[in-house]
C-alpha cells in the first residue's frame, strides 16, 4: 500500500500533522537502521571472534585440564606435552611491568609538563613528534631492541642474554609512551580552568596547583589511561617476539630470555603446525588467556573510573 494517508489514518495515531511528518520519520528510520548496521558489524565481529576462541579452546581443554593449564609451571607443548601457562603469563607480565616502569612515570611527567608548564609553541612542536613516535611500526622497534638496546643492556649487565625481557620492556615502554602522554595530557587539560584559577587565587604556586589540584582532579582518568596503555603493552607482539626471545621461562629476572603469550602465538602460527592438532589448539587456549587478561585490565579501568567519579561528582 503506497497511500500513506489511508495507511495511517485508521490507527488514529497521526492527525493532519502526521501526514506531513511521515516521510521524515521514514528517512530517520533508514538512517537509524543504517547506523545500527554499522554498529552490528563490530558487534558481530567481536562475538564471532569470541565464539571461535572459546570453541577451539574448549577442544583444547577436552585433552588438557584447565587446572593443569592454569597451574603448570612448564610450557613445552611440542616436546614434553607440558601445558602450564604460567611461564608465558609470567613472561607477559614481566615485560608489561618493565614497560610500565618506563612509560608511566615518564609519560605522566611529560603530560604534566605539556599541559601545565609548556608554552603553546613548545606544545605545537612536541605533540607532532609524539605522533610520529606513535606511528613507528612495531617491527622497527623490535629491530631497534635487538641491534641497540639489547647490546646496551648486555654492556651494563654482562649476565644478560641476547634475548632478554628487559630489552623488550624498554622498547614496549617507549612504544606505549606516546599513548600515555597524549591520553594523560588530554585528561589533565580537561580539568576546568576555574579550578586552577581557584588555586592560583589562593596564592598557590604552579607546583601546588599541579600536584594538589590538577592531578588529583584528573586521577581517575589518568589511572584509566595507564590501564589502557598496559593492556596495549600486553597485546604488543612484534617487538616482544623479536626482543624477548622464545624460551618460556618462569622467572622474574628481567635479564632472562622469556616468551610472552603473544610471541608464542606468533611462533606457532608461523611454523608448520598442522591445523586440528593439539599443539595448534594451544594458540586458542593462549589467545583466550590473553583475552581474559586484557579484558580484566579494561574492566578494572572502568571500575576505577566509576569509583572515583562517584566520590567526586
Amino acid at each position: 500500500m503506497s497511500n500513506s494517508v489511508i495507511d495511517v489514518a485508521p490507527h488514529g495515531r497521526f492527525g493532519i500533522e502526521g501526514q506531513a511528518v511521515r516521510p521524515r520519520r521514514w528517512g530517520e528510520q533508514v538512517i537509524g537502521v543504517a547506523l545500527f548496521g554499522c554498529a552490528l558489524v563490530s558487534i558481530l565481529t567481536t562475538v564471532g571472534i569470541v565464539i571461535v576462541l572459546v570453541a577451539e579452546a574448549a577442544q583444547f581443554f577436552r585433552e588438557v585440564s584447565i587446572w593443569e593449564f592454569l597451574t603448570g609451571t612448564e610450557w613445552s607443548p611440542k616436546l614434553e606435552n607440558k601445558f602450564g601457562i604460567l611461564p608465558l603469563l609470567c613472561g607477559t607480565l614481566l615485560v608489561m611491568a618493565g614497560a610500565a616502569v618506563i612509560a608511566l612515570p615518564i609519560g605522566l611527567l611529560s603530560a604534566i609538563y605539556l599541559s601545565e608548564y609548556a608554552s603553546s609553541s613548545v606544545r605545537e612542536v612536541v605533540k607532532p613528534v609524539l605522533e610520529v613516535l606513535a606511528g613507528i611500526p612495531s617491527v622497527v622497534f623490535g629491530y631497534l631492541a635487538i641491534v641497540t638496546i639489547s647490546p646496551l643492556v648486555r654492556t651494563i649487565f654482562p649476565s644478560a642474554g641476547v634475548f632478554n625481557a628487559a630489552s623488550a620492556s624498554i622498547v614496549v615502554g617507549f612504544m606505549v609512551l606516546p599513548m600515555v602522554v597524549s591520553l594523560s595530557e588530554d585528561i589533565l587539560r580537561a580539568v576546568p580552568r576555574s579550578l586552577r584559577e581557584a588555586a592560583y587565587a589562593l596564592g598557590a604556586t604552579k607546583l601546588d596547583v599541579t600536584v594538589k589540584v590538577v592531578v588529583p582532579a584528573a586521577i581517575s582518568g589518568i589511572v584509566a589511561a595507564f590501564l589502557l596503555a598496559l593492556s596495549r603493552a600486553i597485546g604488543e607482539t612484534m617487538a616482544v617476539a623479536l626482543a624477548a626471545g622464545n624460551r618460556p621461562t618462569l622467572t622474574i629476572n628481567p635479564l632472562d630470555e622469556v616468551q610472552t603469550m603473544t610471541a608464542y602465538i606468533v611462533q606457532v602460527s608461523q611454523g608448520d603446525t598442522p591445523a586440528g592438532t593439539l599443539e595448534y589448539r594451544t594458540i586458542f587456549a593462549v589467545g583466550l588467556a590473553l583475552f581474559v587478561t586484557t579484558m580484566f585490565l579494561n574492566v578494572l579501568a572502568q571500575w576505577f573510573v566509576a569509583r572515583v567519579r562517584e566520590k567526586y561528582e
Binding site: 576546568p192 576555574s194 579550578l195 584559577e197 581557584a198 588555586a199 587565587a201 589562593l202 596564592g203 598557590a204 604556586t205 601546588d208 594538589k212 589540584v213 588529583p216 582532579a217 567526586y312 561528582e313
Partner: peptide, 26 residues
C-alpha cells in the same frame, strides 16, 4: 589579594580541604 569568583569553583575535595587549601599552601 584574595578573590571570590563569579562562578563558584570548589575543588573536588572535602569541605574541610577546600577551606584549608589556602592556609596549607601558605
Amino acid at each position: 589579594v584574595g578573590m571570590v569568583f563569579q562562578k563558584s569553583n570548589p575543588f573536588p575535595k572535602s569541605v574541610f580541604e577546600n577551606v584549608a587549601y589556602g592556609p596549607r599552601v601558605a
